[in-house]
């Protein structure tokens, strides 16, 4: 796949060294190109890229609030349509909090209405912008500032909310999961999403050095471990047709992923085993 050299997210942004969110945005914008309007939900990516009077965005961009990016995009898309600019891509970048929690209603409405928007949830599995609080997408066992481990707690006690499947249940014509560590897979999905007549939803797994607790150089490694252990699965659902898009040759033990991050360090073997069993079960169903 030929990957465009041109950057649509400029350097100079305030993301942490090794930030995975900006990698995701960069790669997505490369596929969408200049004929794009981007909508951001409040969160890390929004804050680090638009410190007034500067912006990192080279495409038109709007931020309104935390929970309404899908609704804002609905308005943008229809307004562009009303001006005969149907060919413009409207892409949303919202965090897992802005998607799985506070923004779920507006996302559901927008997807149901069938706007031609590409909604990318960049999932770093917590509210990073406000200091690593848990979200509905925080995985089981992770210690966050609002699901801390302690004498009475092993961290987050609920499994990750399955947003891509909730999107699929809306009948969204294109639903996919992706990882910044598999850029070709992700970028192909963005391209497909852009070619859809209706809405598209991509759930992008995005390691976060600050929130997960690993060395900044390991951002890509961490995303790869998630996929190679089966903790994160790459698939797409095109018009209801489910397909795994990447199968690790040999699935690694989930401990390799968990032990590499501070947020799981506290877990007892018993909890880690539970996680492994859960991963095994999901992977068995998908023959991974």
């Amino acid at each position: 796949m030929e990957i465009p050299e041109q950057e649509f997210l400029a350097a100079g942004h305030r993301g942490c060294a090794g930030c995975g969110a900006t990698i995701g945005a960069r790669l997505a914008l490369k596929m969408l190109g200049e004929n794009t309007v981007a909508v951001s939900a409040t969160g890390c990516l929004e804050v680090i890229t638009t410190p007034y009077p500067e912006t990192s965005w080279k495409v038109p961009w709007i931020h309104v609030a935390f929970e309404n990016s899908a609704a804002v995009a609905s308005g943008v898309e229809r307004a562009l349509k009303s001006q005969g600019k149907d060919d413009v891509n409207v892409v949303v970048f919202a965090g897992d909090g802005g998607t799985a929690d506070i923004g779920l209603q507006s996302l559901s409405g927008a997807m149901e209405r069938g706007h031609r928007i590409i909604y990318i949830c960049y999932d770093n599995e917590a509210y990073m912008n406000t200091g690593v609080q848990r979200s509905g997408a925080t995985p089981y066992g992770a210690s966050t500032t609002t699901s801390p481990h302690g004498k009475e707690s092993f961290g987050e006690d609920k499994p990750k909310k399955n947003i891509p499947m909730i999107m699929a249940a809306h009948g969204v014509p294109y639903v996919a999961t992706a990882s910044i560590s598999y850029p070709e897979d992700f970028m192909k999905k963005v391209k497909k999403a852009a070619e859809m007549e209706g809405p598209a939803y991509i759930h992008l797994h995005q390691p976060c050095t600050t929130g997960w607790g690993y060395d900044p150089s390991k951002t890509i490694e961490m995303g790869r471990l998630a996929v190679d252990t089966g903790a994160w699965i790459l698939y797409e659902i095109v018009d209801g047709e489910f397909k795994v898009t990447y199968r690790p040759l040999q699935r690694k033990p989930v401990n390799e992923y968990l032990n590499a991050q501070k947020r799981f360090k506290h877990l007892a073997d018993e909890e880690k085993e539970k996680i492994q069993n859960y991963v095994n079960q999901v992977c068995a169903e998908l023959k991974i």
Partner: peptide, 27 residues
């Protein structure tokens, strides 16, 4: 001749209005 958006809430009504107005059209 307008795009009528059947939003799922008033929060989204005004949010969509802001997005649309942001593109430079009357809302």
């Amino acid at each position: 001749p307008a795009e009528y958006i059947r939003v799922e809430s008033e929060h989204s009504a005004i949010s969509a209005a802001v997005g649309a107005s942001g593109t430079g059209v009357r809302v």
